[in-house]
C-alpha cells in the first residue's frame, strides 16, 4: 500500500499549488473565526486533493494498470480510503492548531469543529467513492453534485445545532460513530465493486 500512497503523493505534489493556498486560507478562517462554511471548506480542500487522485487514476488508465500489477484490488481501494482518511485527519489537526494559536480554548467549540469536519468528510467519502469506483468519475459527476447539495443542507442544519451550546452531548459522540460505520461500510462496498470491475476500455 505504501507504493500506492507514494504514487498519490507524487500526484498531489504536482497539483497542489493553488490548493495549498486555499487550504491555508480556510484553515486559518476556520481556526480563527469558526463558522460552518469555513470549517467545511477547511475539510473539503485537503479532501479534494486526495479525491482528484481518483479522477486521475481513472483518466490515465492507472486503475487498470494497478489491477494488472501485483496489487490486490482490495489494496487499491484501501489506499484511496486511507488517503481520504488522512486528508480528513490532517484538516482536523490543522484547524485545531490554528484555533489553539488563536486562543480559542473552548472545549465545546473545538470539539464540535472537529466532529463537523470528521462527519462531513466521512460522509462525503462514504457516498461518493463507491459511486466513482462503480460508474467512473465522469458519469458520477451529476450524483456527486447532488450529494454535495444534500450534504450541505443536512450539514448546515446539523452544524447549527452542534454550534449551539444546548446540544445534548451524546449527539457529539453518536455522529462520529455513525460516520465511522458509514465509512467502513462504504469501504467494504467499494472493495466488492472493485473486485468485480472489468476494464473493457474506452
Amino acid at each position: 500500500m505504501m507504493a500506492l500512497l507514494l504514487k498519490d503523493v507524487f500526484l498531489m505534489r504536482r497539483r497542489s499549488g493553488i490548493m495549498l493556498l486555499a487550504i491555508a486560507i480556510f484553515v486559518f478562517l476556520s481556526g480563527v473565526q469558526g463558522g460552518l462554511v469555513n470549517t467545511v471548506m477547511a475539510t473539503m480542500m485537503p479532501l479534494m486533493l486526495g479525491f482528484t487522485t481518483l479522477a486521475y487514476d481513472q483518466n490515465d488508465g492507472w486503475e487498470a494498470y494497478a489491477c494488472a500489477l501485483p496489487f490486490s484490488r482490495k489494496l487499491v481501494v484501501q489506499s484511496k480510503y486511507v488517503l481520504a482518511l488522512g486528508c480528513i485527519l490532517l484538516s482536523i489537526f490543522l484547524v485545531l492548531v490554528i484555533g489553539l494559536l488563536a486562543s480559542r480554548w473552548e472545549i465545546h467549540t473545538v470539539f464540535s469543529n472537529a466532529v463537523t469536519q470528521f462527519v462531513f468528510g466521512a460522509f462525503f467519502v462514504s457516498i461518493n467513492y463507491p459511486l466513482i469506483f462503480k460508474f467512473g468519475f465522469e458519469k458520477s459527476r451529476l450524483y456527486y453534485i447532488l450529494v454535495m447539495v444534500a450534504l450541505m443542507s443536512i450539514g448546515s442544519v446539523l452544524a447549527s445545532l452542534l454550534q449551539s451550546a444546548s446540544m445534548p452531548a451524546f449527539i457529539l459522540v453518536l455522529l462520529p460513530i455513525a460516520s465511522i460505520c458509514c465509512f467502513t461500510a462504504s469501504y467494504l462496498l467499494s472493495c466488492s465493486i472493485m473486485k468485480k470491475k472489468e476494464f473493457s476500455g474506452s
Binding site: 504514487k7 500526484l11 497539483r15 490515465d60 492507472w62 487498470a64 501485483p70 476494464f199 476500455g201
Partner: peptide, 27 residues
C-alpha cells in the same frame, strides 16, 4: 508477468524515476 495493454497506463503526471520508486515497492 510483464505486460503492455492499451487502456492501462502510467499516471500522466509521474516521471520515470517516480514510477520506479512506486514499482520497486510492488515488484
Amino acid at each position: 508477468i510483464g505486460f503492455i495493454v492499451d487502456d492501462a497506463s502510467v499516471p500522466s503526471l509521474v516521471t520515470a524515476n517516480e514510477l520506479a520508486a512506486v514499482l520497486r515497492r510492488c515488484y
